[in-house]
Design a protein around this nucleic acid. Structure first.
Lengths: 243, 243
DNA sequence: CGGTCCTTTGATACTAGTCAATTGTTGTGG
DNA sequence: CCACAACAATTGACTAGTATCAAAGGACCG
């Protein structure tokens, strides 16, 4: 199967992404060197390595995580279609975290060496790259606030709302639910909770008819109610650039 | 008192910051529109506002925080000299967090409207800006790992080590200690701990002779030992750009 | 000198972690 | 097609780490 052309990119059409001019599309196409297709379970980027690539997730899902000295794992965030990865290695020379494919994934691969060229020749795209970093920074800040100030139940609710929104924004909602092929352990590691307690909180939300996550799909029957539990002020997600 | 010229900038000389060419200094000077001097306690940026400015901390310290719906405060990080602020508002149009001066502060002010010009005319500086965002992203990721996976004692130790390193890197170490004019409540809010428990953990570290934080100064007699408690692999800090 | 703010300490309550065992699911080989 | 292994989800019992509550110093200021 041949590589997807940027102009045909199914993600770009989504309202969540800021529109791109034809020229931008052409340049992005040049910047793209190919596609990486990996099986579920593959480690795409390894902490400490200096992988020379930048990626955008085209299909599939993964986790971005670090491992502490005591062996505990922290999932920094989940990777969904449209997400950009590898900027830290791209600029700082070394990965500060690992990325693992949870499902089979397809990633657009960009040449890291072309990064500086991008800054010189395509300021709008460079601007977008910084924008992406700023959006990511904002999201990480919100995660910090969740881990620091929300109770276990609130954290789970918060994560489910955010995940639901993100997947919906990239068009993965169907039959009132979204695919969510992670293990409960992954969510636990993302929220700093134990697996057992995560399980109990999920059951609680299920019993209250707020969110059902089973068989790899997440169904939220009453999003506003779940957002209330999560202490989230539900707002339309702001458009962000896609690279 | 007149504004500090970029070429005289006392921060730029520090090894922690990547060197700047004369041209870069000249441009930065043009980009800078002045200085903001504020008293302790001033709110510099307010969540939700669309402040049109970008800042670099020249002197003093502050906190970057958000407030949740239930009134609890999460300190995202501390602002020290050399730190850059306002990028989110600069790109995304609205502040996602507030910034408050803890001590009197002096900030270099940059014109937000010149931001795009910077991308068009000075790709190296634009590159640096993205670099700064990536460094910040990395630091926030480490914070997430701390809140998620470290115990209270480890979190405190972690924070003190990181703070000590950062202040030392900008030349604020003197007599084997660094100034740290925050309240225990600020640290508690940064680490997602209660004030009381934070106090007890600080006492524990003090009793073990690992770290003394009193009267606005932090003294770490045995940094490697503190880093061990914190589960940190002590490494020389990597240089980052200054704007 | 009283008031305010921050730090410190003790007592108690509760959230979430750990341990252990059971159930359900999927895939494999006989 | 069934037995078994491997893994994920679930549940219950118990424990530990932190939060909460309350009160007492200390430091600073008008």
């Amino acid at each position: 199967m041949s590589s997807t052309a940027c102009r045909e990119c199914p993600l770009r059409k989504r309202a969540i992404f800021t529109p791109m001019s034809r020229e931008e599309i052409v340049f992005t196409q040049q910047f793209k060197t190919g596609e990486l297709v990996v099986d579920a379970g593959t480690t795409i980027l390894l902490e400490g390595s200096n992988s020379p690539q930048l990626y955008t997730v085209l299909k599939g899902m993964g986790t971005r995580y670090t491992t502490l000295e005591n062996g505990r794992r922290q999932v920094i965030n989940f990777l969904f279609p449209g997400d950009f990865a590898g900027l830290q290695a791209g600029l700082m020379g070394e990965m500060k975290h690992s990325i693992e494919a949870t499902t089979p994934m397809t990633l657009c691969v960009f040449r890291r060496t072309a990064l500086f060229q991008l800054y010189e020749l395509h300021p709008e795209r460079a601007y977008d790259l910084t924008w992406i970093a700023a959006v990511e920074e904002h999201f990480l800040g919100e995660t910090i606030a969740s881990l620091g100030q929300r109770s276990a139940a609130q954290r789970i609710a918060w994560a489910l709302v955010r995940i639901y929104e993100r997947l919906k924004a990239v068009g993965m909602e169907a039959h009132g639910s979204v695919p969510l092929p992670f293990k409960q352990q992954d969510l636990a590691d993302a929220l700093g909770l134990s697996l057992v307690h995560t399980n109990k909180m999920l059951k609680m939300l299920r019993d209250k008819n707020l969110a059902q996550w089973q068989n790899g799909r997440l169904k939220v029957s009453n999003l506003p109610a779940l957002a209330t539990v999560a202490m989230i002020d539900l707002a339309a997600p702001e458009p962000r650039p896609l690279i």
